[in-house]
Nucleic acid binder design. Structure first.
Lengths: 232, 232
DNA sequence: CTTTTTGTTTGCGCTGGCGCAAAGAGCGAT
DNA sequence: ATCGCTCTTTGCGCCAGCGCAAACAAAAAG
């Protein structure tokens, strides 16, 4: 994997870093490659590194003692993750598990270093705080949806969100392609694989999406939004 | 309301602030009093101030377009809230509504000032980031609970959490008193007032709690925890 | 003390969504 | 081409939890 200090300019959380800063971060970090289905870290592990994804795709999830799990976030290249431990001195433990959805590589920044960098450069902290507030806002909205909306709306919302964040627009019309299993979508929507399957089937019948094995093509995004809003 | 710079030492988010810092913050702020059921700010308002609660109790909630709402957080004195706008330059808008549950007073810190204070004093930013990470961890757990656990467990969990955060221990045994309506608890647990009522009735029959009008006394906390864990 | 307001309880019927089970389909490996 | 693995679909039965409605209870107002 080729990661250069220059590539780090794409990292939103580090947007106000200087070239020197990025070089320093780069020099103090190591690259970690994880193959599909492997883990960057597990919930409960000591949080020693913050990560910047360079290639592949990673999902952050949380499980309860019984092993049921929810997907909290999907990470695409040049997003930072696992940075919670960079801030806390006390019990720096990852609160989530980071699993590679495909072969992935990431820059692992030692928190001891990252922490002192933040202490010396307030403008870096703002980048991190901005990311945190964005995430807080998103998860609060999702929390509200989970509490107040019904499954159909939540699944539609999940697709809309995914399409916006990491959908690949196909050539002609407004087709947006997503690579997720029914189980994945269920864990993102707080429902079951069966219910997701039934909903996708119905939407396919209506021509809103096209479904395949671990693939969902959104044909009429606008219609999905209507469903998400409860107007269908 | 008497708020002194010294009192601000109790604010966890400002724990590493110097006396001078606290004085400066104090001098640049104003006190806002809001009576019961009044609002400090509404979801969507321009986020011009960060608040530190001095007295009373405030709940942070979010509503959807249809007006259904969820309670995200309950603020007790010397907690900071509404600080999301302090960090973001772009669209500083409160993502939640802050409503007083009783007559309350808070120190309103102008974000323009607070922001520059953070820029100049990295150690202050760490206090804020710490608060943010704590909150992220809590809401992620609650999100998972909402997605994977059943109502009985969630309501029990809500009571356990409330008891831990702001329960007042009664003299003798381990009684913990809480002042919330069934509706409040429902909005914190992602369920309905009816279901909460039914559950509380049953638990009262079993002697786990004592219920009153806008009052819940936890008699056997340990038993509640068992229910929350799904072992009852 | 009486009235009004606000919060609580509980019976009842309904249904959204769960989850088993079994069949079907897509994809990689040999 | 065929096998085998994994993911998906769908019929079916079930029940947790919703929400109306009406009675009840505790405060607050007058």
């Amino acid at each position: 994997m080729d990661i250069s200090p220059d590539a780090l300019k794409q990292v939103v959380a580090l947007q106000s870093a200087t070239d020197d800063d990025l070089h320093l971060i780069y020099k103090n970090s190591v690259v970690r490659s994880v193959e599909e289905d492997g883990y960057f870290f597990m919930q409960g592990d000591e949080a020693a590194y913050s990560y910047v994804l360079a290639s592949g795709q990673v999902k952050l999830m949380q499980s309860n003692p019984q092993g049921q799990q929810v997907n909290l976030r999907t990470i695409s290249p040049w997003q930072m993750y696992g940075a919670i431990g960079a801030v806390r001195k006390d019990n720096p433990v990852y609160p989530v598990t980071a699993q590679a959805m495909e072969n992935s590589a990431a820059l692992a920044i030692p928190n001891s270093f990252f922490r002192s960098a933040l202490e010396e450069r307030p403008y870096l902290a703002f980048g991190i705080m901005n990311q945190m507030t964005s995430y807080i806002q998103e998860i609060q909205i999702r929390y509200r949806e989970l509490a107040t909306e019904k499954v159909e709306q939540r699944v539609a919302n999940t697709l809309v969100r995914l399409a916006g964040q990491l959908g690949v627009r196909a050539t002609d019309e407004v087709k947006i392609e997503l690579a997720f299993s029914r189980q994945d979508v269920a864990e993102m929507s707080g429902t079951t694989l069966y219910t997701v399957s039934r909903l996708l089937s119905e939407w396919e019948r209506r021509g809103v999406i096209k479904a395949g094995r671990e693939k969902i093509i959104v044909v009429k995004p606008h219609e999905l939004v209507r469903i998400a809003d409860g107007k269908a």
